[in-house]
Write a protein that binds this DNA or RNA. Structure first.
Lengths: 223, 223
DNA sequence: GCATTACATTGCGTATACATTAAATAATGC
DNA sequence: GCATTATTTAATGTATACGCAATGTAATGC
């Protein structure tokens, strides 16, 4: 995205730590001393410390003095909480997007994302599908136009990212999903606020239930 | 609340800065250098810096390299965004509280808050009313039981605190407010999820519209 | 052998020193 | 005079030093 000429060490630490967390190199539940992380990232403790404080604020880890920072793991109950929150906020965004009276051109990103999901589905390319699905949801929230909602949703998407990629290959192919996406797009196009809200709320609720059931079925108590 | 034996300097800085911001001593929109704040708080730059980074994460200020930290002011549009978000999240909490099947004893805090508001109203004690109103809303969200929602709502309440206290004496006395509160309490008691959601959503929407209109009427473009 | 206390270790919180670089100012050429 | 470039200033970003307090370990008493 936006490239600074010289990326600050703190920025590097934040990005580096997030990457290490998302990739699982820093496992959920594991503890790491500031010194260790600093050495790992090739910098002094100061920017690492700043980064961990910020990531703590974002709910990705917990700073536990003298025990190291703990990479947070999410219980099923946590996932349920987060999905409930995302359901509500995305549905709010859907309603607002419908209210905004967007022209067809404004909704092109949504269209594209849906097309990409369809292609990915037919090719059974789960990674591509997941990317397009995230695009769709991100764009939907953006169209909602509430900047606070946008950043909260982005934050919690980060938090569940690991869980998503863990379940990507054990979940059923989301065949029905795109019907919902198209229905939502139609509702937004038509400016039908309540329908947009309702369609997306149900879509998200279903996804939530599916995911929770999946986690329980596979005994994934923590992700 | 929870007292540390020795409060860390960073903690002191956070609390101190928040206090200075809420009280208006650090005015909305004003800029302050790290060194200045450090001197003011009687500590070195390090904990001040950590505090400002965390408060930036909480949306209370913005760190602008070489220009100092800027205390954020909220435009009317910002207030609108935040109130929209709070409306949705509190209404979600209301629905969940209704779903939880709380016993009468569990809802005592809500009852008390309503009583306190009534007393405060009859005595025209606006400060007391505001405290009780905040108690009510905080407790409602707590009863909702979603810890993410709880902390987000607390965060945004901090952000609008200054605006609230600014408008406290120019707004009309909230005579009707308590009817809504009681109706919500009844809905929660009765376990009527949709009613609880609806009642509170409307209550909040009204409060939002009143506040926005008030800000505009008084030409308060930034608070 | 167990509990308790003294001791050693070490990770963190904070202060401070220093390098970097954006901004402000002065100087130069036209 | 104006624009452009060189210089200075100063606030930040980062490294480092250091003391404290928490944790683990050894020593002591019973």
């Amino acid at each position: 995205m936006s490239q600074q000429r010289t990326k600050s060490q703190t920025r590097t630490a934040i990005d580096g730590l997030k990457e290490l967390i998302f990739s699982g190199e820093l496992a959920a539940g594991s503890d790491h001393l500031e010194t260790e992380l600093a050495a790992r990232l090739g910098m002094s403790r100061t920017p690492v410390r700043e980064a961990t404080l910020m990531l703590e604020g974002q709910g990705l880890l917990e700073v536990r003095p003298r025990k190291g920072v703990r990479i947070l793991s999410l219980s099923v109950a946590d996932m349920d909480e987060i999905y409930e929150l995302l359901t509500e906020l995305e549905s709010l965004a859907a309603r607002r997007a419908a209210a905004a009276g967007y022209a067809k051109a404004d909704l092109k990103c949504l269209e594209d994302a849906i097309d990409n999901m369809e292609t990915a589905l037919s090719e059974e390319d789960r990674e591509a599908w997941a990317r397009a699905d995230e695009d769709f949801h991100t764009e939907l929230v953006r169209l909602g136009g509430n900047s606070r909602v946008i950043s909260i949703v982005a934050n919690f998407n980060d938090q569940v990212r690991r869980a998503r990629s863990m379940t990507l290959y054990i979940r059923p192919l989301p065949e029905k999903s795109n019907e919902d996406h198209r229905a939502l797009l139609d509702a937004i196009s038509a400016g039908d606020q309540e329908l947009a809200f309702k369609v997306h709320h149900e879509h998200r609720s279903n996804a939530r239930e599916m995911l929770i059931a999946l986690l329980q079925k596979h005994g994934l108590r923590h992700v």
